[in-house]
Amino acid sequence: MADVQPRPLEMSREQPKSRQMVKAATAVTAGGSLLVLSGLTLAGTVIALTVATPLLVIFSPVLVPAVITVALLVTGFLASGGFGIAAITVFSWIYRYVTGRHPPGADKLDSARLKLASKAQEMKDRAQQFGQQHTGGVGAHQTS
């Protein structure tokens, strides 16, 4: 393989060293400042935990049941709201279906209703045939 030499056109696209140095300095400055900020956050967290631990231990007989109670209340309210929204959505869908506005999924409901109706009619016909076959035989035995 031969060494590929950059063409003069490609050399003009390369960035000068000063621009590369500015980019590197900017990256080092941004990274360093974020690293310092991360260290300060960690130190603050450790100090806050050190100060708060005795308070949490002292008040834990009150705080734990309070947190459990608040969590149950929030869960209950969220579930209640979700069920309420679901009920309103279902009622609005039913209202649109009954008034003939054809909500999404109405065609599937109609086809399922027609299938059920045809199966019910088929079962009714079979039951009548079964009843006629056995009723005729039972009536003949009773008359003789």
Rank of each mutant, 00 (worst) to 15 (best):
D3Q: 06
D3V: 08
Q5W: 08
Q5E: 07
P6L: 15
P8H: 07
E10H: 08
S12Y: 10
R13V: 05
R13Q: 15
E14H: 08
Q15L: 15
P16S: 14
K17Q: 01
R19H: 07
M21V: 10
V22Q: 02
K23C: 03
T26V: 02
V28S: 04
T29M: 01
G31T: 02
G31K: 00
G32N: 09
L34M: 13
L35I: 01
L37T: 05
L37E: 10
L42P: 00
G44V: 03
G44R: 09
G44Q: 12
I47S: 02
L49I: 08
T50R: 09
T53W: 05
V57A: 13
I58P: 00
P61E: 12
T69C: 00
A71K: 02
L72N: 09
L73G: 07
F77E: 12
A79F: 11
S80Y: 15
S80V: 13
G81P: 00
G82N: 05
I85F: 06
A86I: 14
T89C: 07
F91D: 14
S92Y: 14
S92G: 09
W93I: 14
W93D: 07
I94W: 03
Y95N: 05
R96V: 06
R96C: 10
V98A: 11
R101H: 09
H102C: 02
A106Q: 11
L109R: 03
L109N: 00
L109T: 15
D110N: 10
D110A: 02
D110Y: 02
L114N: 01
K115C: 05
L116A: 04
S118W: 11
M123Q: 09
M123S: 13
K124A: 10
A127H: 03
F130M: 14
Q132L: 02
T135G: 15
G136Y: 02
V138H: 08
V138W: 04
V138M: 12
Q142E: 06
